[in-house]
Structures are given as structure tokens and as C-alpha cells.
Write a protein that binds this DNA or RNA. Structure first.
Lengths: 134, 134
DNA sequence: TGATATTGATTACGAATGTAATATATTACA
DNA sequence: TGTAATATATTACATTCGTAATCAATATCA
């Protein structure tokens, strides 16, 4: 059930580009990263390669070029990373984690409102079907 | 300003023990980890050593034993890790990150309430001193 | 068609990590 | 005081990661 490959920090950057927009050639990925990372194009190619090996990316051939595209969903990776982070730093306790971020961060009025609504909904469901937490 | 050492996953486990309770001898740390990690005592010693080298831990000598204690604050490390996680996975956008967790998680009624109160306070301050976000 | 440019594949290499084992110093028991 | 037990220090070793350079295959231009 958990066959997610491990995505390193640098690799996340590359995945980010392709999750946002794909398929892309290697050079297009390189271009997207200009300004955000001071990487040699060679480095980016290496990362693309590793991600293919890890089966985090797939590609279709177009002449002698590859058109890369994600082979795993961003949302799955986000969940995996989040779980790992939560366990490592907050011992798996999500309440304290959220509290921490709300305290630390400078949320905009809109963000606060969005979250409040979300929580309100959560609270509703909660009391609507007591104990039946899926 | 950012002189925090990098704490690896395994090292977090050890730091966790000492943040919760210190000072402790190496063996006491080993004991605390029994059941949670299937590590050889040697491995724990190695981690303690590395953490001392990284200046994440310090120790006082007691006979031929060391009494280890944290040399950096948990809160600082939490902030560092959180920032790194946020940047990597959510591109630094805290709103979406919180939304994600609230959506994904199964918060207890109490946790929901706590967060709602927190957000309410945040919202208050927000409108009280507009634009003056520190 | 031959030289060149481009693309992906392979190789490189040091630092960090996970996971210990061995060596050395010191203490404590007999 | 000698020897065993224990504690820390040093060394080990395979992987992963960051960061590229070089090699090999192919396409393109002259």
C-alpha cells in the first residue's frame, strides 16, 4: 500500500515543476528552474534521471528527446511527507502541530477565515456522527 | 542567525528523548528508546556522538559516564524543520498547508475548538493593527 | 555524408545517514 | 593490583544526496 518512492529535497523541486505543468522536455524543466535554483542543467538532468529510476517520473519519447511527466500524484507525496514530518517533529500529534503553525505564522485575514470555515464544517460533521470517525 | 545544526530523522528520535527528560546517561537514553526503535545500543551511542559533534547535545562528565543534555532548544528545531517542510512541500504557502492538514486529519472536538479560538484571536489582532504584521 | 550539436546514460565524488563493530580508556571487583 | 566490565572514541561500510562531468547515441546542418 505504501510504494511511494522517497523524494529528496532537490527532487521535490523538479517534481514541483512537472506537477505544475507537464509533459515537459528536460530543457523546459531546466528553464522553469532558472532563477529559483542555481543548478547546472546537468544537475537537473541527473535529478530527472533519478526520478525516472525511482518511478516518480515517466516519459514518452519524442524523437531523441523525452517528454517527462509525473508518475505519482502530488497529493500522495504530500500526504507521505506530511506524515513523516508530523511523526518526526511532533510525534504524530496533529493538534499541537496545527497550533504551532497557527501561532508562528502570519496568516492573512482571508486565510484565517478559510480555516475557520473549514474547522466549523469539521466540527459539524463531528457532532453529527459521533464516534464514527473515518 | 541560522546556526542550527541539521538533525536527521534518527537523530530527532534521540533528541526527543533528551528534550523530554534530561540529563540522561547514554544507557538511559537507550532504555528510553527500547520498544520505539529496534536499535543496537551501539547505534544510539553513535547518534549521541554525532549530536555532540553537531553541538546539538552537550554533556557533563560524571565519573567515566556522560550526562547528556540538549544544547539547542526544541522549539528552534521545530521552527527550522517546519520551515523546511513548508517550503519543500507547500512552496512556503502556509494557508494551503494548514488547509491540507485540517482536511486530512481527524481532529477531536477539543482540538477543533482550540484551533478555532486561536484563529479567532489571530483574527482579532489582525484587524486591530492593520498592516502591522510582525 | 560528414562534422557538430544535443540528448540521454553512465560515471564521479564528497558529505550525510543508518547501522554497527572494534579499539581504547577507565572503573570496579576480586 | 590485575583483570573483567563498561563507557566513550574511532573506524567501517553501504546508501542516498547534491552537484556535476564525461561518454555514447542520435539528429541536424552544411
Amino acid at each position: 500500500m505504501d510504494a511511494l518512492p522517497t523524494i529528496s529535497e532537490a527532487e521535490w523541486e523538479v517534481m514541483g515543476v512537472l506537477w505544475a505543468n507537464s509533459p515537459l522536455t528536460a530543457n523546459e524543466v531546466v528553464d522553469q528552474l532558472i532563477g529559483r535554483k542555481a543548478w547546472s542543467p546537468k544537475t537537473v538532468k541527473t535529478l530527472l534521471n533519478r526520478l525516472v529510476t525511482k518511478k516518480a517520473l515517466a516519459f514518452d519519447t519524442q524523437g531523441n528527446r523525452y517528454l517527462y511527466r509525473p508518475a505519482i500524484q502530488r497529493d500522495q507525496c504530500v500526504r507521505g511527507e506530511s506524515r513523516s514530518f508530523l511523526d518526526r517533529v511532533f510525534g504524530g500529534a496533529i493538534g499541537p502541530m496545527l497550533t504551532h503553525f497557527v501561532n508562528q505564522s502570519d496568516l492573512s485575514a482571508e486565510e484565517i477565515e478559510t480555516l475557520q470555515k473549514l474547522l466549523a464544517e469539521k466540527g459539524q460533521k463531528k457532532s453529527a456522527r459521533k464516534g464514527k470517525n473515518a
